[in-house]
């Protein structure tokens, strides 16, 4: 059996009285494209920072490619590339210099320059390679930040909201590059608040809420398990009967969207509407998306 890319055992983190991580267990295999989702403050960045060695776990262990992030931190960090959530940069240097420094800290020398140039080109930074970091636009700084995490060509890549504040063009450019790396065998762990992105990219996702993992499965299973379909009904007259309110996901004027966990709920919904004397103008059944799963698991209170 090959080593897991990431293995997290009962990791807990306290910040004073705050219990930010309440015992996380998670294994990500090599070559996976894994999504870590959850609302603001769920503990995603805290978990990532523990993997990166920026924070120390209060309890539990984490290992990257079999190397413990505390006791064998050098080996663990060598194989890990992290894109931090905060948009940070060093104002003294240009993009290419920073990338070469970053690779240098990991022991890489001139032989790595071709890779640095490939990263620069793949992320659309060629025009800005010799521009001082300070003079880059926000989106360009984000690209440079991603590039820095890749500078030493790590087998395990963790991206903490890499697409925040990034335009459509870069998202596509970036994802095609990250996908290519994934195909070449790099393990990718991604956090994002754009759920379509996670749905499209990640083969498996974990959903976190208040320091706990509340769902962990393949994207396909989650989609079928938690919210099979959406039923939209447009009413010509009448109201949505109260028996259907628990299923109501959202309402736009007279269009009510109901989340169905099973397809046969369609009959139930329609008969309830008939009983209530509501007149239906239009009906649509849609596939659920990750957002539905997300809302049903971590949405609300």
């Amino acid at each position: 059996m090959t080593l897991p890319a990431i293995k997290i055992d009962n990791v807990q983190k306290h910040f004073g009285a705050l219990h930010a991580l309440k015992g996380i267990d998670l294994t990500v295999q090599q070559g996976e494209f894994f999504g870590l989702l959850g609302p603001n403050g769920a503990g995603k960045s805290t978990l990532i920072n523990i993997l990166a060695g920026l924070l120390r776990p209060t309890n539990g262990n984490a290992a990257i490619m079999g190397h413990d992030v505390v006791s064998d931190y050098q080996a663990a960090r060598l194989v890990l590339g992290v894109v931090p959530q905060e948009l940070v940069f060093d104002p003294f240097f240009n993009v290419r210099e920073m990338l070469r420094f970053q690779a240098g800290y990991f022991g890489r020398g001139k032989e790595n320059d071709a890779w640095v140039d490939e990263v620069i080109e793949s992320l659309g930074l060629s025009d800005k390679a010799y521009t001082n970091m300070r003079k880059l636009s926000g989106g360009m700084k984000r690209r440079a930040l991603i590039a820095q995490a890749l500078a030493h060509k790590p087998p395990v890549i963790v991206l903490d909201e890499p697409t925040a504040g990034v335009d459509v063009e870069l998202r596509q450019l970036m994802w095609s590059f990250i996908r290519k790396l994934n195909k070449q065998g790099h393990t990718i762990i991604l956090t994002t608040h754009y759920l379509e992105e996670a749905e499209e990219l990640c083969s498996r996702v974990a959903m976190m809420k208040q320091g706990e993992i509340v769902a962990l499965d393949t994207t396909a299973n989650l989609l079928s398990k938690f919210a099979a379909k959406n039923l939209s009904v447009q009413l010509k007259s009448g109201h949505l009967p109260s028996s259907l309110l628990p299923m109501l996901k959202h309402q736009e004027a007279t269009v009510f969207t109901l989340a169905l966990t099973e397809l046969n709920q369609v009959e139930f919904a329609l008969s309830e509407l008939r009983k209530a004397g509501a007149e239906v103008e239009d009906i649509q059944i849609n596939e659920a998306d990750l957002e539905d799963v997300f809302l049903s698991l971590v949405g609300g209170a």
């Binding site: 931190y73 060598l78 940070v88 060093d90 104002p91």
Partner: peptide, 17 residues
């Protein structure tokens, strides 16, 4: 300066002892 700017993470993420 690296702490205030936050770019100290670039060093903290490395295997440097």
């Amino acid at each position: 300066q690296s702490k205030v700017m936050g770019n100290i993470v670039f060093i903290l993420l490395t295997p440097l002892t």
